[in-house]
Design a protein around this nucleic acid. Sequence first.
DNA 1: AATGAATGAGCGTTCATTCAT
DNA 2: CATGAATGAACGCTCATTCAT
Lengths: 218, 218, 218, 218
Amino acid sequence: MSLNKMEIRKKKILHTATKIFAQRGFKEATISEIAKDSKISEASIYEYFSTKEGLLFSIPAESSRVLFDTMAFHLKLIRGAANKLRAIVFLFIDSYRNNPDFAAVLMLYLKHNKKFLDTTGHTTIKTGIKQITRVIEQGIETGEFKEDINPYLIRSMILGTIEHLVTNWVMTGNPKNLEELVDPLIDTIIQGIQNRGDDPIHWSLQRPINKQDSSNGT
Amino acid sequence: MSLNKMEIRKKKILHTATKIFAQRGFKEATISEIAKDSKISEASIYEYFSTKEGLLFSIPAESSRVLFDTMAFHLKLIRGAANKLRAIVFLFIDSYRNNPDFAAVLMLYLKHNKKFLDTTGHTTIKTGIKQITRVIEQGIETGEFKEDINPYLIRSMILGTIEHLVTNWVMTGNPKNLEELVDPLIDTIIQGIQNRGDDPIHWSLQRPINKQDSSNGT
Amino acid sequence: MSLNKMEIRKKKILHTATKIFAQRGFKEATISEIAKDSKISEASIYEYFSTKEGLLFSIPAESSRVLFDTMAFHLKLIRGAANKLRAIVFLFIDSYRNNPDFAAVLMLYLKHNKKFLDTTGHTTIKTGIKQITRVIEQGIETGEFKEDINPYLIRSMILGTIEHLVTNWVMTGNPKNLEELVDPLIDTIIQGIQNRGDDPIHWSLQRPINKQDSSNGT
Amino acid sequence: MSLNKMEIRKKKILHTATKIFAQRGFKEATISEIAKDSKISEASIYEYFSTKEGLLFSIPAESSRVLFDTMAFHLKLIRGAANKLRAIVFLFIDSYRNNPDFAAVLMLYLKHNKKFLDTTGHTTIKTGIKQITRVIEQGIETGEFKEDINPYLIRSMILGTIEHLVTNWVMTGNPKNLEELVDPLIDTIIQGIQNRGDDPIHWSLQRPINKQDSSNGT
DNA sequence: AATGAATGAGCGTTCATTCAT
DNA sequence: CATGAATGAACGCTCATTCAT
């Protein structure tokens, strides 16, 4: 009962804080605002979170775990690295679209905070992100993706693009239809990395010149 | 003369502010610190910049213009949209690598500031970024790139990946060799967007000249 | 039974509070600390003591009464004002030495608190201190001490010196051997106030009995 | 000029702080009060003193130096250790009587503060107090005082009595005529420690019994 | 009787910014 | 023009105290 009530209060604080931080910015927001909006006293907020920054860092914990659990669940059901990557991108985008305040806090105030790096919230995210790398590596192992691609780079392309799009979206409202970019994005990347039956290899710059020559010369 | 002196003082302030903001964070940094480090009084700083945030927003003006002028200059000399994109990515990365403090300020404190959107500094950047869009559109027009690609998405992929990589770099020091990712990045994207069937690689910079000649000359 | 239990809890609180106040200072100490250390909840502490300051003011009540009762008991057994003063000083010093936390609280946080003046704890102390004045006055009446001395001043000298020494002791740990200063202190004062001409030392405890006898017998 | 003005402002702050601390107590007093009373903004107070406690610790610096300089000056003009001690006690008492707020702050909030021990203000006081010890030691060297007295104890008696009297005075207003106690106080102590022509030594408990005997037996 | 939980009321401190010289 | 000095306006955080069970 009491535990339940406390859980509810804690979530209320987190929810309100997410909203206020998203609207006003972390530094500009005040604990007083969050207290008023959540109808929980400032002192009580400090019962649940040790500092204002601690409150900020507590925001991703839950949302992220939900996202990454969902992701792990779906990945088991999907065959093919390309399809898995498509699902990942879709789930990310979808999660952000449905939680714009959370997306804003993550993109604007957490991703660029060095102290956040040492946080359990960040650890959760890092763990989740490793799933992406694993999918890429599996794609390479199965021969679905080219051997010479750099998984870290591909992952960075996926995440970087998502971050860029979502950041723009939370800041300006554009692009309106984030989810419509999922397929073109993933298609472009897949085409850049997958093995193709028709002469797919020679484009790779790391390949020796003569290899390219021979294929061209045919 | 006096004007010249003032210019020097102003640049000194900007340079110091960039350094301090990068090291300590925008909110954490104080005008007092910048004054001490630049040996210019706080009051004088306010002679040159109206507010602390105004000082922050003044930082990209110069560096960005230099970058985009250089970019415009190079793009005139390069043939082929793919090669142009490669040059663009290279120039971005190279510029950030050579100005890590500026890169940090841009990635950590400007890119996510809504007020910055209404700034001449941001206008400069936007103008510069349009060059990328234009290159992509030209690639489509010339048939070098597929017709059905979304230039905005491609531009977002390029910028998003760069931002992601550079942000990581200024925050953690990794990846150590940013510049080595330029080619794989651009190659992956190019392969995702270029028309295939005809020889797609004529303008690849790594390709021997005679190769291009032969294909052009056909 | 239940009353007994309550008494035990109350004493536990007082004991812990004395320790915490002595270690951390009255203002710096928190009820929360006392609660944790005593394993009695904060709310319960407020069942026994109305306010934090009330808790502080309750500390001397018991210890002081014990001291002054002991003192009254001993004074009945001792003959001669000088010997009585010596006993008093000894008992004070000994009491503080054996209860350093209590000594610290008394010297550092009670003696200088104006509100403490209106407290029953202070009344107890005042009553006890009157015993000193009475001994001095008796010394004057019996002719053992000079007629023209100011009992209030002499009492102040005795108390002031004790307070000064004990305050130093609780703050710095010095002087190490408080009790060794009892005799020199009381001797100096006695010599300053006793009637000379007739033999003043009959009751000196350190003197051999026969010595006194011989002088008396003359 | 400007320096002068700053000096005046600093003294004004110190003066007001002394008053407020004396009236309301250190912890109860607020910087806001001091600011209002001194008509100097809170922020400016922090320009002159780094913290509230730093402000408190800065109070004795000046007053004490004045007192101890005066003391050193007078001591040069006075012959005889007893007379010097009398002058010292008088100067102390007189100084406190003329600066009751300072006396209150010193007696109630500084003397019992462990952190104050590490302060330059405390160093000044310690240095000044050494003058007392020196006078006592000189009294011993010249034979004016007994050989076997403990200078530390005598100094503690003098300071302890003064502290006790002045503390009572600042807390309760009594005794009304502090200065009238100077002579009785010093007389009592002097008689307790000075060498007397008429059989002064045998009272000393440290002396060997036979020594006393011989002097008695003469 | 005992306590976990909640909070009202404050306060020290910080700085961006302005002013007077 | 340059600046040393002054300050207004906030805000995070702490705790003694109370309440509900």
